[in-house]
Structure formats: structure tokens, C-alpha cells
Amino acid sequence: MFRRLETTGGDHVEFEFDGRRIVARRGDSVAAALLAAGIKSFRTTQKSGAARGPFCMMGACFDCLVEIDGETVQACAVPVSQDLLVGRCKQVSLSPRDEQ
């Protein structure tokens, strides 16, 4: 479980993940904000249905995928913004298998 070093300070931003209201700090990536809110699993894998969350936090591993505006994006690469709507990926549409 992650916690903030500084318990005060920073502008608060509220956004929504999977229907749940999340309070974040301006400057957080969606991934960091969700981890700070105690959300571990962001999605499940297509093949085995295993739970997945952030792994590298630097845009390389693609484990933290979420859905924003109908697109599958890396949660660690998107900054939070007020009232941003973030959903769980129903299907990871980045693999060519989906288009078949």
C-alpha cells in the first residue's frame, strides 16, 4: 500500500475510475493516483484473466493500461485532470488478435 510522504499540500484534482471518485494531486499520473488511492489491479489479461497493475511506471511495460475516451492508454503516461473519466479496459485492443 502506498502513502503520501507529504500529507498536506498540492492542488487536489478529482477524477473517476470505473465509476469510483478518486481524489488525486495535480501532477499525478493516472497510475500514481490510482496506486495512492489503494487500487492495485487496473485490468485483467486477455489470455488468462490475471489481474495486472503498474510495473515499470515509465511507459515501457504496458501493464497499467486503462481506457480513456474509448482509447487504450498507459495510465502512467497520462496526467490526471479534473473530472477525467477513466475506465477499466474491457479488451486490450492493442494486439492484432482483436481485429480478427
Partner: peptide
């Protein structure tokens, strides 16, 4: 997570585990 990820969370977000 990777150790690098843990550091990124500290540097960028002040998050510790």
C-alpha cells in the same frame, strides 16, 4: 513493481510503500 518504478513514485508523487 520494479525498483525504478518505486523510485519514480517517490520522485514524482511523494509516494512510499
Amino acid at each position: 513493481l520494479t525498483a525504478g518504478a518505486a523510485q519514480i513514485l517517490m520522485k514524482s508523487n511523494g509516494l512510499v510503500a
